[in-house]
Design a protein around this nucleic acid. Sequence first.
DNA 1: GTGACAATCTGTAACGTTTCAGGATATAGG
DNA 2: CCTATATCCTGAAACGTTACAGATTGTCAC
Lengths: 351, 351
Amino acid sequence: MDRQQTEKDDEASEQGRPTLKTLAFMTGLGVTTVSRALKDAPEIGAETRRRVQLVAKQIGYRPNRAGVRLRTGKTNVISLVLKTEHEIMSFVSDIIYGVSEVIAGTPYHLIVTPYSRSQDPLDPIRYLVETGSADGVIISRTQPNDPRARYMLERGIPFATHGRTDMGLIHPYHDFDNYAFAAEAVRHLAGIGRRRLALLAPPVALTYHRHALNGFTDALSEVGASEIPFNTVSIDHSIEQIRMRTAQVMRRDVRPDGFVSSAAAATLAIVAGIEDAGLKLGRDVDVVSKQSSDLLHLFRRELLVVNEDFRLAGAELARSVLGWIGGAAPGSLQSLSVPTEVLAYRRSTPD
Amino acid sequence: MDRQQTEKDDEASEQGRPTLKTLAFMTGLGVTTVSRALKDAPEIGAETRRRVQLVAKQIGYRPNRAGVRLRTGKTNVISLVLKTEHEIMSFVSDIIYGVSEVIAGTPYHLIVTPYSRSQDPLDPIRYLVETGSADGVIISRTQPNDPRARYMLERGIPFATHGRTDMGLIHPYHDFDNYAFAAEAVRHLAGIGRRRLALLAPPVALTYHRHALNGFTDALSEVGASEIPFNTVSIDHSIEQIRMRTAQVMRRDVRPDGFVSSAAAATLAIVAGIEDAGLKLGRDVDVVSKQSSDLLHLFRRELLVVNEDFRLAGAELARSVLGWIGGAAPGSLQSLSVPTEVLAYRRSTPD
DNA sequence: GTGACAATCTGTAACGTTTCAGGATATAGG
DNA sequence: CCTATATCCTGAAACGTTACAGATTGTCAC
């Protein structure tokens, strides 16, 4: 009797999770054949292929990620790079859910790679690229001239940015149309008689600062309203800073009668500042704000809102990265989310 | 001249990232020696050790994760298992930041493993364990008799729960003391003259439902106040449902003059419901709410709040899991976060 | 001088996968 | 009957790491 098989018997009867070797033993085929059969290689007979796949499914075979990764370099990982500073009413959970939605049912895992304020934003990217820790990367807080995007383009690693760059380089992105948002907001405010408008913009360093600003000023001249400068704060400032600054500007003789706010949390601060100055929302001043969940109307029903869907953003970003990894042209993986119209929950009548 | 070295020369002069082989070539040592030297093994000469470590640092050697994982089974991954349903004002970003904080500077990566409402919560856990995808797991939405905790205990995989179980089994957890929160809230409301209190509790299935409820009822009898039943909704219900239900109960003859709310988003709904019924916060009724970021006082300054720090929770959970992986006793890795006292921003005087 | 022993170091194998370079068999062409 | 070719399958090697089982020194006791 042939006892050279002893080793193989042992291996295959071991308890651990099944490997290609297990499958090979069970089907009586070679490891190579099994590997090929599982990925529908054409040089494997149709019947063999079905047989292998059946057995694999039956015993719940799952390729060992470490094995694949070591051999091929493919990590099956998408990394979401995040700044860990506390953003109040943060949208990152929504982005994560959006990404998750898309990669569920793919072999991809989502890893979250954090960096802190004190760090160079390039650090985590370098780490990921140098250690080959991910097949694709998603970044946010995108800048017009973004060193991270440039770096990844140079190394040829697929990525997508939340927000656009402005370097003449082509890469996948998803962005909310902040130009349209700001412009619509201004038009709406003008439509209800507001003439002196202030913009609480995103931080200057980020690309969408300019988008929002341009939409704001373009619409201002279109409707013939004027701007009250409000650029000493941005939505990155603290609630308290925005609140104080708002109160200050509202106490002036020439004060805004309308605000455009690029973030929901900041809007709370603006409203607080307005009320600190003894003025009333909806009567003395109106505020149009972006929001990512439908909460602002509970806060003050006079608030005017435009919705931004971060879960959608996450999903689009994930789709883009996977698309690039899958070989699609980066230029074809760009999307822009069109704002909803300005929504008024209920306006109190000015008296 | 010895040209048997040709192969080795080639390998070491390749461009890719350095491996043990590269280091071995550069130092003139064997791969095994290098591997040992890097982990301070005692059988390596002190000088050799320093030399290897110096070179490794110089050329920026980083162990290949796939190699380690394949050989040892160690993934250097912590998985955070999350339900992906849209939670408004979600705290998951804070938890993620807290976890990140702790695992920064360790070789660990954080992967987010989602599951959706429709799925068995055990599914993602089974996946992780069966595929050996993580060295440690963090779960939330913990139940008194939690199948996930039981499963992981059986398989011996380190984990920590956000919230406690009640199965007589010992495992690491971090929890906010919701008993103390609810009790304190009741005492505070009683202290300002409120006698008929309603509790908006966490969903019944979760362990901290009972904690909150017990704290609530114990304190009620302690201060001699009475409960207005409000258990047809929980903080898992939609804003609209909570709002409607609040308005209903506030229109009754015998209505609450105080609420204890276990979540900030739900509090917005409660307040909206109160005002729907034509009543005034701070005059007709007071509300004590948990909050995880300091926003509620902007919403209505009459709100009474207790802060819960989810970033801390994330950090503690990460520390617990790492501790367990590191061999600490699970029983020593449990922590309970004591609530801050009830904070009043500013109360309007009842008239 | 020799055996024992400690101190350092090293090669080989293995983890699970895919790729490379074939090998075996059958079919067809001449 | 032999060769060419297509079809289907296979073993060996490699990815980077660690564990195992030595190998090579030098030192010391006797």
